[in-house]
Nucleic acid binder design. Structure first.
Lengths: 212, 212
DNA sequence: GTGCGATGTATCGGTCCGATACATCGCGGT
DNA sequence: ACCGCGATGTATCGGACCGATACATCGCAC
C-alpha cells in the first residue's frame, strides 16, 4: 500500500522523505493517521533497489544561491523512474483482496484521478460488496446474538452498522456518478478539480449532499 | 490490544483458540475484520509464558461422554488466572495514546461493561479530543489546500470529515449519557443489556436515534 | 464411501508502527 | 550576543499484526 502511495505521489513531483510524509498525510489524512518513518524509509530503500525510483543528494539550487556557506547536508530527493510509472499503473489496475479493505481502498481512491474509469468502477463496486458483507455480519450479530452481548458492545455494533450503511450510500452515489456523469460532485461550485495532469476533467455538481 | 481483548474474553469463560477467534470477531466486528491466527496463537503463547492464562488439553466431558472412541485430539482450552484478571484490570484502567486510536478505542469500548464509570468517561473524552483533532486537520486541508488536490481526493476528505463529525456527535451523546444517566441507550425497548456479570445495569432509552 | 465445508492448531515472511537517536535551521527572548 | 526551542530532516530497531499456508479431524449430504 505504501509502495503504491509513494509511487503515486512521486509522479507529481520529486520529493525528499520528510516532504513525502507531509504530502502523504495531507492526501490520506481521511483514512489513516500519519505514516511512520519506520515504514517510509525502508520502503523507499526497497523501491530504489527495485529500480522504481532513484535517489540523489540535493544540489544547491542554481549553483548560485547560497553556494557553499554551510555545506548543505542531507536531503535526499527521490525521483520516479519510467519503470516506476509502469509499476504504478500496474498496481493501480490490478485489484487484489487488499484493494477493498479500509486502507487499501482509501489509497486507491486517493489516486482515482490517475485511474481509468473502468477500474474506478470495479474498485467502487468491490468496496461496496465488502462493506455490504460487513454490514450483514453486524446485522446478524445485532439480531441473533444480541442477548449474549452487553449494552456497550451492542452500541458499538450499532454505530458500526450505521457507518456501514452510510458508506454504502456514499458508494452508490459515486458509482451512479461514475456510470453516467463524471468526477465526483463538487458541493460548492466555483472551485473545480485538480490541475493540469488530471485524468478526469472536473464536471459541475451532479449529486447533492443529502438533507432532502 | 489483542492481549487486552483475549484477557477480557477469557474472563467470561474458558475457551480454545478457534472459539476465541469467533467471539473476538463477534465482539469486535464493528471495528476490525477478523483477527488472524498468525497473531492469536503467538499472543496466547506469550500470555501463558507471562502467567496471565493457563492452557490445558481438553478433557472428555464428564469422563463418561464418548470415552475414548477416537482419542480426542487437540483442542487446547485457555483459562484466565488470578494474575491475568489483575493484568486485565490494570490494562483497562491505564490509558496510553494507543487507547484512543481506532482499534484501541474500539477494544476498550467493547469492555466498558467491565470498566468503572470514571475510566469510561476519561476514555470517551480522550477519544473525542483525538477525533476533533483529526477533524480540524481535515478542515484545514479542505480549506487551505483544496486547490492543490484533485476532485477525488477532496471527496475522500469530505467523506472522512463527515465521519468525524458524526463520531464526535456520537461521543457527545455517550458522554452526556455517562455523566448523568447510565449505560448506552437501547433504541428498541424490550431487549435489555448483558447477563449477570454486567457491571452497568441497563437503563431504558435516554437518547434517540436521529431522523427528526 | 467419499468428498467437502466447518472445526481446529500452528508457523513463516513481510508490512507497518512507535520509540528513539541525532543533526541543522531560523526565530524569538533575554 | 547567546540560548533554547520548534520545525525540518534522515535513519534504525524491536515488536505487533496480517495473509498465506500446511495439516488433521468431524459430521453430513450425495
Amino acid at each position: 500500500m505504501l509502495e503504491l502511495a509513494i509511487l503515486g505521489l512521486l509522479q507529481e513531483a520529486p520529493m525528499h522523505g520528510y516532504e513525502l510524509r507531509k504530502e502523504l498525510t495531507a492526501k490520506l489524512g481521511a483514512i489513516r493517521a500519519a505514516i511512520s518513518y519506520g515504514s517510509l524509509y525502508p520502503t523507499l530503500r526497497r523501491l530504489q533497489a527495485a529500480g522504481w525510483i532513484t535517489e540523489a543528494a540535493e544540489a544547491p539550487a542554481t549553483a548560485e544561491e547560497v553556494p557553499a556557506l554551510t555545506s548543505r547536508r542531507g536531503r535526499v530527493v527521490y525521483t520516479i523512474t519510467a519503470e516506476g510509472k509502469e509499476r504504478f499503473a500496474q498496481l493501480i489496475a490490478q485489484a487484489g483482496p487488499e484493494t477493498y479493505d479500509d486502507t487499501g481502498f482509501g489509497v486507491h481512491f486517493a489516486f482515482f484521478a490517475r485511474t481509468d474509469q473502468a477500474t474506478r468502477l470495479r474498485i467502487l463496486e468491490g468496496r461496496r460488496r465488502k462493506i455490504e458483507e460487513r454490514r450483514e455480519g453486524l446485522r446478524d450479530v445485532l439480531g441473533r446474538a444480541a442477548e449474549r452481548l452487553d449494552a456497550y458492545t451492542l452500541e458499538l455494533q450499532r454505530h458500526g452498522l450505521d457507518a456501514c450503511e452510510r458508506e454504502v450510500r456514499w458508494l452508490e452515489e459515486l458509482i451512479a456518478n461514475e456510470r453516467s456523469g463524471r468526477a465526483p460532485a463538487d458541493p460548492r461550485p466555483g472551485t473545480a478539480g485538480g490541475r493540469g495532469d488530471n485524468d478526469s476533467p472536473p464536471t459541475p455538481g451532479t449529486s447533492r449532499k443529502e438533507r432532502p
